[in-house]
Simulated assay, not measured.
Amino acid sequence: MPGELAAALHAEALKLRRSRVPWATAGAVLLAAAVGAFFMFVLQDVGRARSLGLLGTKAQLTGGTADWPGYFALTAQTVSVGGLIIFGTAAIWLFGREFSDRTVTDLLALPTSRTAVVLAKFVLLLGWCAALTVLLVALVLVLGALLGLPGWSGGAALQGAAGVLGAGLLTAGLAVPYGLAASVGRGYLPAVGVLFLTVLVAQVLAAVGHGAWFPWAVPALLAGTAGPAAAQTGWGGPLGVLLVCLGSAAATAAWWERADHRA
């Protein structure tokens, strides 16, 4: 099995390297960091932003502070919401492309077990998501330094970066079910529908105070999107995310082992 997994990882990594999707997701991360920096720039001096035409005269900004803890907190919230779309897209592409490109039968003809192929895809997905999250943290450090944000300290930077990385890790785990959706749906579109449905439900449940019971809302709650009071989900929130991740991975492997891929 280790040899099969290594071979499958090599093959999946080649597909990823030859695709433009990694560049698209990296561009989305760059945009997210730039938007966060824009908000920090505006919050530094609202009057200056209005004079430069960056903010309408009647616009009101509430919440958030133009300092390092505020920038890291905003970034963690961005990862927990926008990251689900980026990471989910990566998961959908990894599995859905095999059906859309009609390469699934060729893939299964290889002398590699189906379980090894699925595990390779998920390992690559988690590594991909981790790399994007690290890239985002690096961009935050650079852009925050260029803005001259106050409140810098080694402890604050470590705490802020840990918050962003934690949000990224939880969100990456929640992207695993979209690989199952793309497999069962045999393509992109059904999985995209599931992606948008879970994002919508997560936002609604978080708004009415029941987000802690829905794993897809947990990262956003922990990041403080619904306020400090809602950030305490207890151990049940992260545990639910872990169960969703592991259960979806096991279900995907079982489906690939038993499903008829001739169609």
Rank of each mutant, 00 (worst) to 15 (best):
2 P>K: 14
4 E>W: 00
7 A>T: 00
7 A>M: 01
8 A>E: 00
10 H>L: 12
13 A>N: 01
15 K>C: 03
17 R>G: 04
18 R>P: 01
20 R>H: 12
20 R>G: 08
21 V>A: 05
22 P>I: 09
23 W>V: 06
23 W>N: 06
24 A>K: 04
24 A>Y: 10
25 T>W: 08
30 L>W: 12
31 L>Q: 15
34 A>I: 12
37 A>T: 04
37 A>F: 02
38 F>T: 05
39 F>E: 12
39 F>L: 14
45 D>T: 09
46 V>W: 07
51 S>A: 13
54 L>Q: 12
55 L>S: 12
56 G>W: 07
57 T>C: 10
60 Q>S: 14
61 L>A: 11
62 T>H: 14
63 G>N: 15
63 G>Y: 13
63 G>I: 12
66 A>Y: 03
67 D>L: 11
68 W>C: 06
68 W>Q: 02
69 P>T: 02
71 Y>F: 15
72 F>L: 08
72 F>S: 02
74 L>R: 15
74 L>V: 11
77 Q>L: 08
81 V>T: 15
82 G>A: 13
82 G>K: 07
84 L>E: 03
84 L>P: 00
89 T>Y: 15
95 F>Y: 13
95 F>A: 08
95 F>R: 03
97 R>V: 04
100 S>W: 09
103 T>L: 00
103 T>R: 00
106 D>P: 08
107 L>T: 08
107 L>F: 10
108 L>C: 11
109 A>R: 15
115 T>N: 01
115 T>E: 00
116 A>G: 07
116 A>C: 01
116 A>E: 02
117 V>C: 02
118 V>M: 00
119 L>N: 10
119 L>E: 04
120 A>Y: 01
121 K>N: 01
121 K>M: 04
123 V>P: 03
124 L>M: 14
126 L>T: 08
130 A>S: 14
137 V>D: 01
138 A>S: 05
138 A>R: 03
139 L>R: 05
141 L>H: 04
142 V>M: 10
146 L>V: 12
147 L>P: 01
153 S>L: 11
153 S>Y: 10
153 S>G: 15
157 A>E: 06
157 A>Q: 08
157 A>P: 01
158 L>N: 03
158 L>C: 04
159 Q>G: 15
162 A>C: 11
163 G>Q: 04
166 G>P: 07
169 L>Y: 06
171 T>N: 06
175 A>Q: 07
176 V>C: 10
177 P>L: 02
177 P>C: 05
178 Y>M: 04
179 G>L: 02
181 A>S: 06
182 A>G: 04
183 S>F: 00
184 V>P: 05
184 V>R: 12
186 R>V: 07
189 L>P: 03
190 P>W: 09
190 P>N: 07
192 V>E: 02
196 F>N: 11
197 L>I: 07
199 V>N: 10
200 L>W: 04
200 L>N: 05
202 A>I: 05
209 G>I: 02
211 G>H: 00
211 G>Q: 03
213 W>E: 13
216 W>Q: 05
219 P>L: 07
224 G>Y: 00
226 A>W: 06
227 G>K: 07
229 A>P: 01
231 A>G: 12
237 G>L: 01
238 P>F: 09
239 L>H: 08
243 L>H: 02
244 V>Y: 06
249 A>Y: 01
252 T>D: 10
253 A>Q: 06
254 A>W: 05
255 W>L: 13
256 W>L: 09
257 E>L: 14
258 R>Q: 14
260 D>M: 13
260 D>P: 07
262 R>Q: 15
263 A>N: 14
